[in-house]
């Protein structure tokens, strides 16, 4: 079975400073891969390479490859299409300055869905998946930026899900939200795994342990160790891994 997503000697540097150094690993389809590591270890840069949002960073230089279904994303002509296939949830919740409904309908509309009935279905499905529907179903016209932080983060998730991405990347999604919401989103992710490949950058080691099938440990721009969650936590081969995942450092 081929990997759904593969990084091959992926390197990123910003104006000569290495943020990611020849990182290689594979992610099987319909699994959750947690990328763990301390701040500045290269997690966000890695995620940005996956849907090529790194293209917007003027100073960034990328070498190596990201393969999606065996195809190098750097060779893809349709970058906008790639970004719909690979969804992204950022660390801080961003309600776009439009209604809750329009936030979620944004991507489908970009893709050309115009029929109101069809949009209604997509919006409701995405909001339900993000466990936000019950809280906002009566105020879909409310400005997205008026929701609470936790709700906005689930709105961000719903927005990403509205595209039915085959890969969903989450960058420290729980950094700005409360533990209860975090747990609810974790449930959502567990549920989503049946249809979607999930890449989760986190510096919460326990979150990785709860959710992930596979763990990638980055430190100082380098990949230290990669393996399935059980062996990474219980029988790591590298000393640094056991110290980091064991909570001794980080």
């Amino acid at each position: 079975m081929t990997a759904h997503l593969e990084c091959r000697k992926l390197s990123v540097s910003y104006g000569g400073v290495r943020a990611l150094d020849e990182v290689s690993f594979e992610v099987p389809r319909r699994s959750i891969c947690a990328i763990v590591g301390p701040a500045n270890s290269g997690k966000s840069s890695l995620l940005k390479c996956l849907n090529r949002t790194i293209d917007f960073v003027d100073t960034a230089k990328v070498t190596g490859e990201v393969l999606l279904d065996g195809t190098a994303v750097s060779k893809l002509r349709d970058v906008l299409g790639l970004r719909r296939r690979v969804g992204m949830v950022f660390p801080l919740p961003v309600g776009l300055p439009m209604s809750v409904y329009d936030n979620v309908a944004y991507a489908p509309r970009s893709r050309g869905v115009r029929a109101k009935a069809e949009l209604d279905v997509i919006v409701e499905r995405a909001l339900r998946q993000a466990m936000l529907w019950d809280e906002v179903k009566d105020r879909l016209a409310l400005l997205g930026t008026r929701l609470s932080g936790g709700q906005q983060q689930r709105l961000t998730l719903a927005r990403a899900l509205s595209m039915e991405p085959e890969v969903l990347c989450l960058d420290e999604f729980s950094i700005a939200i409360d533990p209860v919401t975090t747990m609810r989103i974790e449930e959502v992710l567990h549920e989503l795994k049946r249809t979607t490949t999930i890449i989760l950058a986190t510096n919460l080691v326990q979150q990785a342990r709860r959710l992930a099938d596979q763990v990638v440990f980055l430190n100082a721009a380098k990949l230290v160790e990669v393996g399935d969650v059980v062996s990474m936590f219980e029988r790591p081969r590298v000393m640094l891994t056991s110290r980091y995942l064991g909570g001794a450092i980080g």
Binding site: V94, S110, A160
Partner: peptide, 12 residues
């Protein structure tokens, strides 16, 4: 963050 979010959704 608005730009990032919109572009990550595949907006032109």
């Amino acid at each position: 963050s608005y730009r990032e979010a919109a572009l990550a959704l595949g907006a032109s």
